[in-house]
Write a protein that binds this DNA or RNA. Structure first.
Length: 429
RNA sequence: GCCGGGAUGGCAGAGUGGAUAACGCGCGGGCCUUGAGAGCCCGUGGACCUUCUGGUCCGCAUGGGUUCGAAUCCCAUUCCCGGCGCCA
């Protein structure tokens, strides 16, 4: 959520920034918002005046009654004043609600270093790292590899849950768990606090952490309950301190979230349909940071660095891209993606997403900070989030990049200690 | 799930239908002091208007209602505490 005061005082600046996202709706909403806000303030002043009048009148009534005198005519007057107040009050409430609605729909302001562009093709590559593997045999895709090794079962998942789900078996399970343990250990070694959040959230906190439009497309809702399955542990971690004032000495507060993630992937029909690349459920270790505004850009780079280090330790070739204005999400001011080389797709594909959401989520959620106990709140925090490791896609990358001619998979050294020192995933006997 | 009790500022805690949300603690500023502390004084939730001096309204978990007037009475919801039930 943007600061309404900033919008009032720097309307053109905000407008120009929003325009970069390439959606003319934003500009229209901004204009409507400013008009509505002016109207709201005018009506609010009127309402306050009327309430003031009533206050005087009720005091007079109280005095009369105490003195044992008749207050009948005053009471009648107060009643008419009351109905007038009720009317304008409704007007103010409607404007307030609509204003908030617009504010909740407007996206975050973009950082000046975000490249202007239309879609993911305009994302700007920042660097590449690692060597793309050359196979002197017919390389297979992760699904064929996984089926041969009997570590993935997609067919039966189709029977039980429908498409985009999977059963992991044997070394597949070990690999998944090893990735989680590896990421969690590496990140917590750096001082991030491990957190296992609830996997379900109410709508109100959810509105604080994400764009309203995401509900239909990405979130699973529990029937007859005000609960949604989380799309990432970022969400319950962000909402964890809703309506709280954190102490400056506790900042930056760095969390390492561990959870399964559930996404409807509505509108992704036909994209990445086979295998484990795009699924309705996967596991993820997530980095999340609450910090003071002046620290957030430095920490954004730290999160990216941490995530890159993990990919490097796994030995996967990747590149980092600066996500452009047309592809960046609603809540982010700037976003880096780490894209790992996927041999079967002959392309770099996203496995990590690293965002600075500045004060956008914190303002929606009411998360502020104070300099010390007893001092008044100083302002809204900044929030940042970044994948550490998402297991589904990382498993895809490991299978495809480290496959051998005989269909076996060499396990990355960094993972072996988390999976019984298995060096190689071998064919089913 | 059922029964009972509760939710008031950063914290503790009064107020049970009629002006300013009492008294503390904490925090900020000032006086005093060589300095610190103690002591004393002032301030310490949000919004709107403003001639920059102030003014007004809102705020007692959340949302409704009753009333000329609600922290206070009624209803619903959420959370916390206790008891019962169920449960890996």
């Amino acid at each position: 959520m943007l600061d309404i005061k900033l919008i009032r005082e720097n309307r053109e600046f905000v407008k120009n920034n929003l325009m970069k996202r390439g959606n003319p709706e934003n500009s229209k909403m901004l204009d409507a918002l400013v008009d509505l806000d002016r109207e709201w303030r005018q009506n609010l002043t009127k309402l306050n005046d009327l309430r003031h009048e009533r206050k005087i009148m009720t005091t007079e009534i109280a005095t009369l009654k105490k003195a044992g005198k008749d207050a009948g005519s005053k009471v009648e007057k107060a009643k008419t004043l009351d109905s007038e107040i009720t009317g304008i009050q409704a007007e103010v409430a409607r404007a307030e609600e609509k204003t908030r609605d617009y504010l909740m729909r407007l996206p975050n302001l973009l950082h000046e270093t975000v490249p202007v562009g239309k879609d993911e093709n305009d994302n700007v590559q920042i660097r590449t790292c690692g060597v793309i593997p050359k196979f002197d045999f017919a390389a297979k895709n992760h699904l064929d590899l996984g089926l041969n090794l009997d570590i993935i079962d997609i067919e039966r998942a189709g029977k039980v849950t429908g498409s985009r789900f999977f059963y992991l078996k044997r070394e597949g399970v070990l690999l998944d768990m090893a990735l989680m343990s590896f990421a969690l250990e590496e990140i917590t070694k750096k001082g991030y606090l491990p957190v296992e959040p609830p996997y379900l959230m109410r709508r109100q906190p959810y509105e604080g952490v994400t764009a309203l439009g995401d509900f239909e497309d990405v979130l699973y809702k529990i029937e007859n309950e005000d609960l949604y399955l989380i799309a990432t542990s970022e969400h319950p971690m962000a909402a964890m301190f809703m309506n709280e004032v954190l102490k400056e000495e506790d900042l930056p507060l760095k969390l390492a979230g561990m959870s399964a993630c559930f996404r409807k992937e509505a509108g992704a029909h036909g994209k990445d349909t086979r295998g484990m690349f795009r699924t309705h459920q996967f596991n993820k270790i997530e980095q999340f940071v609450f910090c003071k505004p002046e620290e957030s850009w430095k920490l954004h780079e730290e999160l990216l660095h941490n995530a890159e280090e993990l990919v490097q330790k796994l030995g996967l070739p990747y590149r980092v891209v600066n996500v452009c204005t047309g592809d960046i999400g609603t809540v982010a001011a700037k976003k880096y993606d780490i894209e790992v080389w996927m041999p079967a797709q002959n392309a770099y594909r996203e496995v990590v997403s690293c965002s600075n959401c500045t004060d956008y989520q914190a303002r929606r959620l009411g998360i502020r900070y104070r300099e010390k106990e007893g001092a008044p709140p100083k302002g809204f925090l900044h929030t940042l989030n970044s994948t550490a490791i998402a297991t589904g896609r990382t498993i895809v990358a490991i299978l495809e990049n480290f496959q051998q001619e005989d269909g076996t998979i060499v396990v990355p050294k960094a993972l072996r200690k988390y999976m019984h020192d298995i060096e190689k995933i071998s064919l089913k006997r």
